[in-house]
Each structure stands twice: as structure tokens, then as C-alpha cells.
């Protein structure tokens, strides 16, 4: 996280500008008695520094409003972030012409919530004016935090969208390289994209963005089961998976299923597939097997397709070691295992 643009250190503290010592002490004591922190600006040289600490409210007496003070405060108001509006309480002389001063201050101190009281001011009145200023400050702080959160969310959203686009780009490139015809490309790309879309929705809908291995298997394999002729049995314990793990496993299961349909056990009516997994909660090891039987004998391809190469590369990354591909007379077998709670 980058440093905040503005510090809130003293946004609940009152800064008092009163050249007459007794006035300053009086106001300070009054505020402290009401549990409001306050500090006194003793001269206009240190005023700029004190303003940099961002006061919650500025209380100024009439006689404090000298040109250099007006200028220093104006510079601070100018530099405020857009959500900030400094509450200012001005204590006027008894016979002051309020309207003239009000107009003047409105002009030289823009973006300040100004309150005017004539002296002598009743303590209760002053306190309530300061408290309403502090409350306004708290609202401004809420606004600031919401704005910050929105910036953060937009960044996160942008990051996720970019990642998804990058994934889709990679799927497209991988599919396009492999495809022998436009209709191959369409079919394979559509299948991979819908596996990606499906797992995205499943993870998004899940509480805490965690899904179980069974949910992933059901999502990817269900469409093939519904087609009736296919028999895919999936069995294993509940293993919680985060978004990345669920996405990788979903795409890999999709590759296994489409391979089985094109060349393996699911290319014939009598074939079936067992997807079996086990998980050790103590070691964190997940072991996964995809066993085809009843189909044509599996022959090791002379050249691996991109789907299979992706499977190998993704599973190696996921489990921390390469998976096994077996081409037997009974059919194709795939197995992978590794510690999925590897130290992260």
C-alpha cells in the first residue's frame, strides 16, 4: 500500500488561534473539560506546521485574524484534499459587523465550514459548535476511507480482469496452435472457455471463494454425464480449494474428459472412467487418478497435443512434481500427487 495522502493524526483535535494568552487557555480548558483535545497556536510562524498536522476544528478569535494568519490558513485550505472542508469557529468582538467579516472570510477562506459567535459566548454554545465541526470531520474521514477503498477495489478488479483476459488469450493461443480446422478451433475453444467460465461462477458464488474438489469434479463432468451414454464415476473426500487451485484442476479435468471423448474410453458406448482422489489432512498430500477402461487400447501418441502438454505442465506446477501418463491395453491412465498445502 502506498502512503496515505493525508494524515489524520489530529483530525479530532482542536487548534486554537487566540493571541491573548488567557483567551487561549480559557477555550482550551473549556474543551478539555468536555474531553475534546486542543492545542494552542502561539504564533503565526508555527501555525503552518500545526495546520500540517490537520486539525479537526480551528477556533479563532477576532483579533487573531491578521493578514499573515489569514494567508497561512488560506494556503492550508487551498492544499486540502477534495473531500476535506476545515470547520472554523470564529469568536467575534461584541460589536463586530458580522456580515462584512463573514463575506471577507468566505472569500479568503474557501472550503471552510464557518461558524460565527459573538463574545461573550456561552460555553454550551461554543462546545456544541466545536462538536458539530468534529462530527463533520468524522464524516469527511469516512468519505475519504470510502474513496480509498474504492480505489483499492478498482485496482483489484482491474487486476482480476487482466488476469482473466491473459488466461483467455493463453487458452486461445494454445487452442489455435493445435487446431487442424476452424471447426476444431471453435469446438475446443468453446469447451475450454466454458470450463473457465463455469469454474469462475462456481468460485464466485462460493462463500470465501473456496470450493471443494467434488464441486469442481461435478461442474466439469456433469455435462458429459447428462449426455447419457457416458459413465464417469467421481469419488473422493472433501478437499477445500482456493480460486487458483480450483481453476487449474477444472481446466485439467476438462482436458482429461475431452481426450477421453475423442480418443479414449468415452469414445465408445461401453467405456467408463473412474476419477478417484484422496487427501491426507496431516501431510496435505492430494493424490488424483483418472482411470479409463472399456475403451480402445491406449497408444502413446507420437506427438503430444497441446491439451496433454498443458495438463503435464499445469499439474507439475500445481503438485510440485510431474504427473504420470500411462497408455495401457485397458485404456489411458493419468495420476498425479503432491502436497497442495505446500509452504506458501
Amino acid at each position: 500500500m502506498s502512503e496515505p495522502l493525508f494524515s489524520f493524526g489530529k483530525m479530532q483535535e482542536v487548534l486554537i488561534l487566540a493571541p491573548y494568552r488567557r483567551d487561549a487557555d480559557y477555550v482550551r480548558q473549556l474543551l478539555l473539560a468536555h474531553e475534546i483535545d486542543a492545542s494552542v497556536a502561539t504564533d503565526s510562524d508555527t501555525l503552518a506546521d500545526q495546520l500540517r498536522g490537520v486539525p479537526g476544528v480551528l477556533v479563532a478569535t477576532h483579533e487573531a485574524l491578521k493578514p499573515e494568519v489569514l494567508e497561512t490558513v488560506a494556503a492550508h485550505l487551498e492544499a486540502q484534499p477534495s473531500w476535506s472542508e476545515l470547520p472554523v469557529v470564529v469568536l467575534l468582538d461584541k460589536n463586530a459587523r458580522t456580515e462584512t467579516l463573514r463575506l471577507h472570510l468566505n472569500r479568503v477562506w474557501p472550503r471552510a465550514r464557518q461558524l460565527f459567535y459573538h463574545r461573550p459566548v456561552r460555553p454550551a454554545e461554543l462546545i456544541s459548535g466545536v462538536q458539530s465541526g468534529l462530527l463533520a470531520r468524522r464524516r469527511q474521514q469516512d468519505l475519504y476511507e470510502n474513496l480509498e477503498r474504492e480505489v483499492e477495489l478498482r485496482r483489484e478488479l482491474n487486476h482480476r480482469v487482466k488476469n482473466i483476459l491473459a488466461s483467455v488469450t493463453s487458452i486461445f493461443e494454445m487452442t489455435a496452435r493445435q487446431a487442424a480446422s476452424l471447426s476444431d478451433l471453435k469446438q475446443d475453444f468453446r469447451g475450454r472457455l466454458s470450463a473457465l467460465a463455469g469454474i469462475h461462477s462456481t468460485v464466485f458464488d462460493a462463500a470465501g471463494e473456496q470450493v471443494s474438489m467434488s464441486e469442481v469434479a461435478a461442474l466439469i463432468l456433469e455435462p458429459y454425464r447428462r449426455e447419457g451414454a457416458y459413465r464417469i464415476r467421481a469419488s473422493g473426500p472433501d478437499v477445500p480449494l482456493n480460486r487458483e487451485a480450483a481453476t487449474t484442476l477444472a481446466l485439467c479435468l476438462h482436458e482429461l474428459a475431452t481426450n477421453a471423448i475423442k480418443y479414449g474410453a468415452l469414445s465408445v458406448d461401453d467405456g467408463n472412467v473412474d476419477l478417484i482422489w484422496s487427501h491426507s489432512q496431516t501431510s496435505g498430500e492430494l493424490a488424483l487418478s483418472w482411470i479409463e477402461c472399456g475403451g480402445p487400447p491406449a497408444k502413446e501418441p507420437s506427438r503430444l497435443g497441446y491439451g496433454t502438454r498443458y495438463l503435464r505442465s499445469a499439474m507439475t506446477m500445481f503438485f510440485g512434481n510431474p504427473p504420470t501418463f500411462e497408455y495401457t491395453v485397458e485404456g489411458f491412465r493419468f495420476s498425479a500427487k503432491g502436497n497442495i498445502s505446500r509452504p506458501n
Binding site: 488476469n163 491473459a166 488466461s167 488469450t169 493463453s170 487458452i171 493461443e173 494454445m174 496452435r177 487458483e244 487449474t248 481446466l251 502438454r309 498443458y310 505442465s313 499445469a314 506446477m317 500445481f318 509452504p343 506458501n344
Partner: peptide, 28 residues
């Protein structure tokens, strides 16, 4: 940490005539 992208980049690296020596998913 995204195997899809790693796999894609592996292909691109080879297309460019370089050698892809592998990938890992964490600093650890």
C-alpha cells in the same frame, strides 16, 4: 502462479528460439 499463462509463455519463449528452463509459482 497461473499455469495457463506459464504454459503459453513457454511456447512463446520457444517460438523466439530461446530455451525455457521452467517455472515455479512462489518466491518460497
Amino acid at each position: 502462479d497461473n499455469p495457463l499463462i506459464a504454459f503459453h509463455v513457454e511456447q512463446l519463449v520457444e517460438d523466439l528460439g530461446h530455451t525455457y528452463v521452467g517455472s515455479l509459482d512462489s518466491f518460497k
